[in-house]
């Protein structure tokens, strides 16, 4: 009885399919993300797949942006984190960095870190303070220097506090950018297939008529 056998085969396999669909959330995906935030002169990185699974044992490469010159590399722990102190070479030259995560099996992603994020001062500020100090008249030099250093200390403290408080927000922003496929995109994709088939059918019918 082939019909019987067929029914016996179709039903269990459909069950298996249903189970798979139940086990997995639609947000699962085959893409890797890396996100980095700066705290003082330490850069923390976090790498995960789109569904939130951390990349454990992935390689993080820290390169100079543009040239691809590698400054250092490291391995992510089981939570997908890898932290490093900005190398002196990058500090001195004020290099923009590119962080690359290699998650294996051809999965790779990158995240840029601008020099201003870890030097704490943008080049504009440095110029301004230089101009200020050169203009300062001699008798008031001590007082002005003291005020400047107090101000610099304050700025450092504020910068550190800000970066600490902003890190989670930046992280959330990055996570928002990397949301998995939504219903809109999936249905849109299916629509593309139907549309392409329509175009193909149209040209075929024109040729045959």
């Amino acid at each position: 009885m082939p019909h019987f056998i067929l029914h016996r085969m179709v039903l269990p396999s459909m069950l298996v399919l249903c189970l798979i669909l139940l086990w997995t959330s639609p947000a699962l995906a085959h893409r890797v993300n890396i996100f980095a935030w700066v705290e003082g002169q330490t850069i923390h990185t976090e790498s995960s797949f789109v569904n939130g699974t951390p990349v454990s044992g992935g390689t993080v490469r820290v390169q100079e942006a543009g040239t691809g010159h590698e400054l250092l590399s490291g391995t992510t722990d089981e939570t997908g984190m890898f932290s490093f102190t900005v190398p002196q070479e990058a500090l001195d030259a004020g290099l923009d960095l590119t962080l690359i995560i290699e998650a294996g099996q051809g999965h790779q992603a990158q995240w840029p870190v601008q020099a201003e994020e870890y030097t704490g001062t943008s080049s504009l500020d440095q110029e301004a303070s230089l101009a200020e100090s050169s203009q300062a008249p001699l008798p008031e030099a001590d007082e002005s220097a003291g005020r400047a250093s107090a101000q610099a200390d304050l700025e450092t403290v504020i910068d550190q506090a800000l970066s600490r408080h902003l890190a989670p927000i930046k992280r959330d922003l990055a996570a928002m950018q990397d949301q998995g496929p939504g219903v809109t995109e999936i249905i849109g994709g299916i629509g593309w297939f139907v549309g392409l088939a329509g175009i193909a059918a149209y040209f075929r019918s024109k040729r045959s008529s």
């Binding site: 798979i20 669909l21 086990w23 997995t24 639609p26 699962l28 995906a29 085959h30 797949f49 569904n51 699974t53 454990s56 099996q105 496929p181 999936i186 994709g189 299916i190 297939f193 139907v194 392409l196 088939a197 193909a200 059918a201 075929r204 045959s208």
Partner: peptide
């Protein structure tokens, strides 16, 4: 020519099916 629509539908099935990721061990 008669299979244009079948091709599109199966392409759509592929498009959707490979979006469904199953975590197996550490990999996906």
């Amino acid at each position: 020519p008669d299979k244009i629509m079948t091709t599109a539908l199966l392409g759509a099935a592929f498009f959707v099916a490979s979006l469904i990721h199953v975590p197996i061990g550490g990999a996906q």
